[in-house]
Amino acid sequence: MVDQQLKIELGKQGVLVTTIEELYNWGRRSSIWPMQFGLACCAIEMIATTMARYDLARFGAEVFRPSPRQADLMIISGTVTKKMAPQVVRLYNQMAEPRYVIAMGACAISGGPFKQGYNVLKGIDRYIPVDVHIPGCPPRPEALIQAFMTLQKKIDAQPLTGEGRPRHLDAAAQGEFPVPEQGEHDLEPTSNKGVWPVPVVIR
């Protein structure tokens, strides 16, 4: 590792010293392409975030890809219903690694105001891993930008080897997540136990 002080000194002299890891992560975090995937109310705020006033393009994320194959980030923008949940998991499976998920808004986190609904999934993290949760109903565009910056920090901090490396560098990592079936009364299974352990309440 290069000494941080030395690095700054060299930088002043016009010499750029970096590590492969830093360069690699800088590249990854500066061009996160989200999938063009709107579910409900939050999708409108997501669109507003990309428009002139909030301008998500400043964060390298202006290119919304309609195809999951070309996207790095899935923004779950709205209520996931039980009718839609298998499709969401399938779309996530179709995305190439490295892939990230932002759960935008109360509905995507837990079902939100519609939690009691018979057709509402109580949080998308029951089936797929979520990297950043943003509360709000809907979250303001600033909140979505905050989530982006949080995700960028997370990517920056990922080492390329060893513990905590991104999934595409880990041959043993789970690549495909089981798609729930639509049963006669409910989704089967009702959650993916490997992704979502039953929450423990400590009081």
């Binding site: 057709n119 009364h185 929450p199």
Partner: peptide, 25 residues
Amino acid sequence: LLMWKGFKDHPMRRDYVDPDDFEYE
């Protein structure tokens, strides 16, 4: 129209029982 094919119940009836997917609130 709204629920999926293969769904058996009629959820707007008043005696409909929600599926048991309860969690901590």
